[in-house]
Amino acid sequence: MQYKLVINGKTLKGETTTKAVDAETAEKAFKQYANDNGVDGVWTYDDATKTFTVTE
């Protein structure tokens, strides 16, 4: 399945996608991506759209 990440950071904004077997695996990949880019915020997930959002 394909999952999307929407980033609403202080210095980084945008979107990225990943393919993963489940939401938990996608979340780990997205959190690593956010961490690598210095984004630390509040996470939400919408199962209907398979979209994670992180807001600083």
Results as ranks from 00 to 15, higher is better:
Trp43Lys: 00
Lys28Arg: 12
Asp47Arg: 08
Lys50Phe: 10
Lys50Leu: 11
Val54Gln: 00
Lys28Met: 10
Asn35Gly: 08
Phe30Val: 02
Thr55Lys: 05
Ala29Gln: 13
Phe52Met: 02
Gly41Lys: 01
Ala20Ser: 06
Asn35Phe: 15
Leu5Arg: 00
Ala34Arg: 01
Ala29Arg: 13
Ala34Tyr: 03
Thr51Leu: 04
Thr18Trp: 06
Val54Leu: 10
Val39Lys: 02
Thr17Lys: 06
Asp22Ala: 04
Thr53Leu: 05
Lys4Ala: 05
Tyr33Asn: 02
Thr55Gly: 04
Thr25Cys: 07
Met1Ile: 15
Ala26Pro: 01
Thr11Arg: 09
Asp40Trp: 13
Val39Gly: 02
Thr49Cys: 04
Tyr3Lys: 00
Val42Phe: 10
Leu5His: 01
Met1Lys: 11
Leu5Pro: 01
Tyr3Trp: 07
Phe30Lys: 00
Asn35Gln: 14
Gln2Lys: 09
Asn8Ile: 15
Thr49Ala: 07
Val42Leu: 10
Val21Gln: 11
Gln2Thr: 15
Lys28Cys: 06
Val42Gln: 09
Lys50Glu: 03
Glu24Gln: 13
Val54Phe: 03
Ile7Pro: 01
Thr55Cys: 06
Trp43Phe: 04
Leu5Val: 03
Thr49Trp: 04
Lys10Asp: 06
Lys50Cys: 05
Asp47Pro: 14
Ile7Leu: 09
Tyr33Ser: 02
Gly9Gln: 05
Thr51Cys: 05
Val39Met: 06
Phe30Gln: 00
Phe52Ser: 00
Gln32Arg: 11
Thr18Gln: 07
Ala48Cys: 08
Glu56Val: 10
Lys13Gly: 06
Leu12Asn: 08
Lys4Ser: 07
Leu5Ile: 03
Thr11Ala: 10
Ala48Trp: 07
Glu24Trp: 12
Val54Gly: 00
Gly9Trp: 07
Lys10Leu: 14
Thr53Tyr: 11
Tyr45Ile: 02
Asn37Gln: 13
Ala23Arg: 14
Ala34Thr: 08
Asp36Asn: 11
Lys31Leu: 08
Tyr33His: 05
Asp46Glu: 07
Ala23Asn: 07
Leu5Ser: 01
Lys28Gly: 06
Thr17Cys: 10
Thr16Arg: 14
Ala20Asp: 03
Leu5Met: 05
Ala26Asn: 00
Glu15Phe: 12
Gly38Ser: 06
Glu24Ser: 11
Ala20Trp: 04
Asp22Phe: 04
Thr53Trp: 08
Thr25Phe: 06
Ala23Lys: 15
Glu56Asn: 05
Val39Arg: 02
Lys31Asn: 04
Thr17Asn: 08
Gly41Glu: 01
Thr11Tyr: 14
Lys10Ile: 14
Asn8Gly: 04
Gln32Phe: 05
Gly38Tyr: 06
Asn8Ser: 08
Lys10Thr: 12
Tyr45His: 02
Glu15Val: 13
Gln32Ile: 11
Asn8Asp: 10
Thr53Asp: 03
Tyr33Pro: 00
Ala29Phe: 15
Gln2Phe: 14
Lys13Met: 09
Lys10Phe: 12
Asp47Val: 10
Thr18His: 08
Ala20Thr: 05
Glu24Ala: 12
Asn35Met: 15
Tyr3Leu: 01
Gln2Ala: 08
Ala29Lys: 10
Ala48Glu: 13
Thr51Asp: 01
Glu56Gln: 09
Glu15Ser: 13
Thr16Pro: 03
Ile7Glu: 01
Ile7Tyr: 07
Leu12Asp: 05
Glu24Ile: 12
Asp46Trp: 03
Lys28Ala: 11
Thr55Phe: 07
Glu56His: 06
Gln32Tyr: 05
Gly9Ile: 12
Lys19Pro: 05
Thr16Gln: 10
Ala20His: 05
Thr17Pro: 02
Lys28Ile: 11
Val21Ala: 12
Tyr3Ile: 02
Asn8Phe: 13
Ala20Pro: 02
Ala29His: 15
Tyr33Ala: 03
Lys13Cys: 12
Gly9Cys: 13
Val21Trp: 13
Glu56Asp: 08
Gly14Gln: 14
Ala29Trp: 15
Trp43Pro: 00
Thr25Asp: 09
Lys4Ile: 12
Gly38Ile: 04
Lys28Asn: 08
Lys31His: 09
Lys10Arg: 14
Ala23Phe: 14
Thr25Asn: 08
Thr55Glu: 08
Gly14Asn: 08
Ala23Tyr: 13
Asp22Thr: 06
Tyr3Ser: 01
Gly9Lys: 05
Glu24Thr: 11
Asn8Thr: 07
Met1Asn: 14
Lys19His: 13
Asp22Lys: 04
Lys50Ile: 03
Thr49Leu: 08
Thr25Trp: 06
Ala48Asn: 11
Lys13His: 10
Val54Pro: 00
Leu5Cys: 07
Glu24Cys: 12
Asp47Trp: 08
Asn37Pro: 01
Phe30Cys: 02
Gln32Ala: 12
Glu24Tyr: 13
Ala26Thr: 01
Glu15His: 10
Gly9Tyr: 07
Lys19Leu: 15
Glu56Ile: 09
Leu5Asn: 01
Gly9Pro: 03
Gly41Met: 03
Glu24Phe: 11
Val6Phe: 07
Val39Asp: 01
Ile7Gln: 02
Gln32Leu: 10
Glu27Pro: 00
Ala23Pro: 12
Thr53Gln: 05
Asn37Glu: 07
Gln32Ser: 08
Phe30Leu: 05
Gln32Trp: 06
Lys10Ser: 10
Thr16Cys: 13
Tyr45Gly: 00
Val6Pro: 00
Asp47Met: 09
Thr18Asp: 03
Thr16Lys: 13
Ala34Pro: 00
Val21Glu: 11
Met1Trp: 13
Asn8Leu: 13
Asp40Lys: 13
Thr55Val: 09
Ala23Cys: 12
Ala26Glu: 00
Thr44Asn: 08
Asp40Cys: 12
Thr44Trp: 08
Glu27Phe: 15
Lys50Ala: 07
Met1Tyr: 14
Val6Asn: 05
Thr51Gly: 02
Asp36Gln: 13
Val39Leu: 10
Glu56Pro: 09
Lys13Ala: 09
Thr55Tyr: 09
Gly38Gln: 07
Tyr33Met: 05
Lys50Asp: 02
Thr17His: 11
Gln2Tyr: 14
Glu56Phe: 07
Val21Lys: 14
Glu56Trp: 11
Lys13Arg: 12
Thr18Lys: 06
Val54Ile: 11
Tyr3Pro: 01
Glu27Asp: 04
Val21Asp: 11
Lys28Phe: 09
Asn35Trp: 14
Thr17Arg: 06
Glu24Gly: 10
Lys50Gln: 09
Phe52Lys: 00
Val42Gly: 04
Asp22Gly: 04
Asp40Tyr: 14
Lys13Asp: 05
Lys31Gln: 07
Asp40Glu: 12
Gly14Ala: 14
Thr49Lys: 06
Val54Arg: 00
Asn37Ser: 08
Lys19Gln: 14
Lys10Ala: 12
Phe30Met: 03
Gly14Ser: 13
Val6Cys: 06
Thr18Ala: 08
Val21Asn: 13
Asp36Cys: 09
Tyr45Lys: 01
Glu27Gly: 10
Lys50Pro: 00
Leu5Trp: 02
Glu56Gly: 05
Asp47Tyr: 08
Thr16Glu: 06
Thr18Val: 15
Leu12Thr: 09
Gln2His: 11
Phe52Asp: 00
Glu15Cys: 14
Thr11His: 13
Val54Ala: 03
Glu56Thr: 07
Asn8His: 11
Ala20Tyr: 06
Tyr3Glu: 01
Ile7Lys: 01
Asn37Ile: 15
Leu12His: 11
Val54Met: 04
Thr53Lys: 05
Val42Pro: 04
Ala29Glu: 11
Tyr45Thr: 00
Thr53Arg: 05
Glu15Pro: 04
Val39Gln: 03
Gly38Arg: 06
Glu27Val: 07
Ala48Thr: 12
Tyr3Arg: 00
Thr49Phe: 05
Tyr45Glu: 00
Ala48Gln: 10
Thr49Asn: 08
Lys31Phe: 06
Lys28Leu: 11
Gly41Trp: 07
Asp22Trp: 03
Thr16Asp: 03
Thr55Leu: 05
Gly38Thr: 04
Asp47Ile: 09
Ala34Ile: 07
Phe52Trp: 07
Thr51Glu: 04
Val6Ala: 04
Thr16Tyr: 15
Asn35Lys: 15
Phe52Val: 01
Leu12Met: 12
Lys4Trp: 13
Lys50Trp: 06
Thr25Tyr: 06
Ala48His: 10
Thr44Leu: 07
Gly41Leu: 03
Val21His: 12
Asp46Thr: 05
Val21Arg: 11
Asp46Lys: 03
Val6Thr: 05
